[in-house]
Amino acid sequence: MSRRAEIKMTPGEVRAYLESGRVANVATIGPKGRPHLIPVFYILEGDGIATWTYGTSQKVANLRRLPEATVLVESGVSYEELQGVSMECDVEIVEDTEQIVRIGTDLLGRMSLDTTAQGNDEVVTAAAQFIRVQAQKRVGLVFRPTKVVSWDHRKLGGTY
Rank of each mutant, 00 (worst) to 15 (best):
G30A: 14
E74N: 11
V139E: 09
F143G: 00
G21K: 08
P145H: 01
P39H: 01
M111Y: 04
K155G: 04
R34Q: 14
E92S: 12
R34N: 13
C89F: 07
E6F: 02
I100W: 08
K147D: 11
G21Y: 01
V94R: 04
M111T: 03
V142I: 15
Q134L: 14
L141G: 06
S20Y: 05
V40W: 03
L63E: 00
P31Y: 03
L63R: 02
G21C: 07
S75W: 01
Y42E: 02
I49E: 01
V148F: 05
F130Y: 14
E81K: 05
V40I: 11
P67M: 06
R65S: 14
L44G: 02
R102L: 12
F41C: 10
A126M: 11
S78E: 13
F130H: 12
S86Q: 14
E81Q: 13
V60L: 02
Q129G: 10
Q118L: 12
E19T: 03
I100C: 11
R64N: 05
P39S: 03
V91C: 02
G55H: 07
G48W: 03
Y17F: 15
W52A: 13
V85K: 12
A61P: 04
T28K: 08
L82V: 02
S75A: 13
V14S: 00
M87F: 11
T56C: 05
D106W: 08
K59T: 03
M87C: 10
V133I: 14
D106K: 15
T105A: 08
T97G: 00
G157L: 02
G119N: 13
V139L: 06
R34T: 08
T125R: 14
C89Q: 08
R15F: 10
R154T: 15
T51A: 07
N25M: 10
Y79C: 01
S78L: 14
E45I: 00
K137V: 01
M9F: 06
G109A: 11
E122I: 10
E98Y: 01
R102Q: 12
I103Y: 06
V77D: 12
I131N: 11
G104Y: 08
D90T: 14
A27R: 10
T115G: 06
L63Q: 00
E80C: 09
V26H: 04
E122A: 15
S75P: 02
T125F: 03
G84V: 05
A135R: 14
G140T: 06
R144D: 07
I49P: 01
N25Q: 09
L66W: 07
T105S: 12
V85E: 12
